[in-house]
């Protein structure tokens, strides 16, 4: 039977009642000082994600209307995402779960409108941003694999939906670009983008950013990582976040390459040069990383003794100065909203 949500609360009444009575209220759903009250308030609750249970019939009253779903997403990425009374990984965990339940309802109710697209896009930005923000956290606090699964799922759904809705390319451009940058190693997506550009040319519409991102992605595909990073660094914040996604992989490729190509026995390569080639933030970081790989540092230069290279090492994921600077100037909720 066709499902159509009727609830206009962020958390439908049945769930709210049960959770309040059993005291299953998340920290971010409790009133804070600004609310000037301490009693639990069902309007602050947001519906939790539940795995689809076989044979269980969902009532329409347990589902939210499309408008409420969008309103709830906005609430999460403005009111909750800006909270700094708890570390971001906890904020992430909460928003992730609640957005997931929203996405689930989009599927259950088969909402295939621009409104659904807007929600999916918020999810994409949220997961891409969180991947950066939490990149240096331990696996107990943040699982990059799970996050990546959700990035890929949301992005492919939103690209598909935007295509099905036949929206003007300007409205699809951001997701098409993210799709390319997140899936750098995926030739199928790159091929699809090439066909897309070919068809756009015929329409001669405006697609400057997409064109730029596609060319940058192509330089990665042909193995020119230097150009990929150089050109990529000039892209807007949301795309920088996607590039950062691959940074530690690229760093590994570069160090492998340099290890075979440079004559490092003579200690002639300055540490600072390595820092810039590897896109690290400080020489200190370069020193730490290089030592892991078996290099020796002597008077500000890098060298390697016979066969000391430890090729199985990996680069640590770190925040990137260029993004940190951008983030200082940026309002997080605006960014997640795509403003």
């Amino acid at each position: 039977m066709e499902k159509k949500g009727t609830s206009e609360d962020m958390c439908p009444a049945d769930e709210a009642k049960i959770r309040i009575s059993r005291n299953l209220v998340n920290y971010f759903e409790q009133p804070t000082d600004i609310h000037k009250k301490r009693k639990l308030d069902k309007s602050l609750l947001v519906k939790e994600y539940h795995r689809p249970a076989a044979g269980k019939e969902t009532k329409n009253s347990e589902l939210r209307t499309p408008e409420t779903l969008l309103k709830t997403s906005h609430y999460l990425i403005t009111k909750i995402a800006e909270r700094n009374d708890r570390p971001w990984y906890q904020v992430y965990e909460f928003i992730f779960d609640r957005l997931r339940s929203i996405r689930q309802e989009i599927v259950i109710q088969r909402i295939e409108t621009r409104l659904a697209l807007e929600i999916l896009q918020i999810c994409v930005r949220f997961h891409v941003f969180s991947n950066y923000k939490l990149c240096d956290h331990s696996i107990n606090e943040f699982d990059p694999k799970i996050n990546t699964t959700h990035v890929t799922e949301c992005i492919s759904k939103s690209v598909e939906l935007a295509e099905a809705l036949n929206l003007p390319f300007k409205l699809r451009e951001e997701m098409e670009c993210i799709n390319l940058l997140v899936n750098l190693e995926n030739d199928r997506i790159l091929r699809r983008a090439l066909i897309l550009r070919m068809n756009l040319r015929r329409d001669s519409r405006n697609y400057e950013m997409f064109n730029r991102v596609l060319d940058i992605t192509k330089s990665y595909a042909s193995g020119n990582f230097y150009r990929f990073i150089k050109k990529g660094k000039s892209l807007p914040l949301i795309y920088l976040l996607c590039i950062h996604y691959h940074l530690h992989t690229i760093q590994k490729k570069v160090i492998d390459m340099f290890n075979t190509a440079f004559n490092l026995k003579r200690f002639s390569l300055p540490l600072s040069k390595f820092t810039s080639f590897l896109q690290l933030n400080h020489n200190d970081e370069t020193e730490i990383e290089c030592k892991k790989f078996g290099f020796t540092i002597r008077e500000g230069t890098i060298g390697l003794f016979m066969n000391n290279y430890n090729s199985s090492e990996k680069f640590s994921k770190r925040h990137w100065t260029i993004i940190e600077e951008e983030l200082e100037k940026t309002n997080i909720s605006n960014m997640l909203n795509g403003v």
Partner: peptide
């Protein structure tokens, strides 16, 4: 970087002196 890549892939035999 292009050269380093070529050397790494064995398309050029030699090394880079910085």
């Amino acid at each position: 970087c292009i050269l380093a890549n070529l050397i790494h892939d064995g398309k050029v035999k030699g090394y880079l002196s910085y």
